[in-house]
């Protein structure tokens, strides 16, 4: 995709966004809420008409969001696209029905999809009784019911706990291995971004960089110093003036990149009065730290930040 641009009124929300998705690849659109991730997906899905876009599919130019592209897509929306008043089996049957799959092939496919989701024993219960993670798994197998070559996922683990997050991504990995489909996922979760082969880092509608997550991490300092404090201004001033650190605000306190954290931590404790610090620790940098370095903003800076800001899950 090249030259994707979109404007709402006077506001340019996408600026010449460009990236490729190779067969079988998982590409992540990483950015805070409001960075343009969902707009990119909506344009490709035909849910909005972009101001400009050049899209090619297998080397052939296609209309952005046109039926040629949509015929190859499976989509997992931010909110599960299921009818919660119906059962999982009924939902899957309706999806296949809409594609013209009936009878024995439909029944066999539904059983396969239920097995993939690991929910055969709950197949005939109304989905309003399902947990968020179970809804997500059914929504995911619904999206791949017709064996799409390209799967779009818009923050597919939003609101899920860690166990459900892992289970959904295990299923994504298995489905990808089984079908060879490509995946384009919009996310602001560092741990989700870490699962991608490449990341399109978006900030304010612009592509900051397109690289594998590992290379983004490699550029970071070796450690991140994490300080929990109720005296941010004083602690920030001391760290900057005395130790020459670049400090940034976090939801829980302050953090600073450094090279030898285990040595620096002693200097920090010496430099600060005991009552100024609640806790101090060091951790390895995450993609959330890499995003700050690249964009000068936090993944939590969007209009509805949902992560805890710590980015503690190491890729």
């Amino acid at each position: 995709m090249r030259r994707l641009a979109h404007q709402y009124g006077d506001r340019q929300v996408l600026h010449d966004v460009a990236f490729d998705v190779a067969p079988g690849e998982v590409v992540g659109l990483l950015g805070p809420n409001g960075s343009g991730k969902s707009t990119v997906l909506s344009a490709l899905q035909g849910l909005l008409r972009p101001t400009a876009a050049d899209v090619t599919l297998d080397g052939v130019a296609v209309s952005p969001g046109g039926s040629n592209l949509r015929a190859r897509l499976g989509v997992v929306f931010q909110q599960p696209s299921v009818d919660k008043a119906l059962t999982a089996r009924e939902n899957l049957r309706l999806t296949l029905h809409m594609h013209g799959v009936f009878g024995a092939p439909q029944r066999a496919r539904v059983e396969t999809l239920l097995a993939w989701a690991g929910l055969e024993d709950r197949a005939d219960e109304p989905m309003k009784q399902f947990s968020g993670g179970m809804l997500r798994r059914i929504d995911l197998v619904r999206a791949v019911a017709m064996r799409p070559t390209l799967l779009f996922m818009d923050e597919p683990t939003s609101g899920l706990d860690e166990a459900s997050f892992r289970r959904v991504w295990t299923l994504v990995d298995e489905l990808r291995a089984a079908t060879g489909m490509s995946v384009l996922v919009a996310t602001h979760r560092p741990e989700e971004a870490a699962r991608c082969d490449r990341l399109v880092v978006l900030h304010e509608g612009k592509v900051v960089t397109v690289r594998p997550p590992a290379s983004l991490i490699e550029e970071m300092e070796a450690d991140v110093l994490v300080l929990e404090t109720d005296h941010r201004d004083e602690v920030r001033h001391t760290l900057q003036s005395t130790l020459g650190l670049t400090v940034r605000d976090e939801t829980y306190g302050l953090s600073a990149g450094c090279t030898r954290g285990h040595e620096l931590i002693v200097d920090v404790v010496r430099a600060l009065p005991r009552e100024k610090l609640s806790a101090i620790s060091i951790r390895r940098p995450t993609l959330a730290d890499a995003f700050v370095r690249l964009a000068g903003a936090s993944l939590d800076d969007g209009d509805a930040g949902a992560t805890d800001g710590r980015g503690e899950v190491r890729p």
Partner: peptide
């Protein structure tokens, strides 16, 4: 906005 019709909207 957040239900079944989302998947219908993206059908070809």
């Amino acid at each position: 906005q957040r239900g079944f019709l989302q998947q219908v909207m993206v059908l070809p």
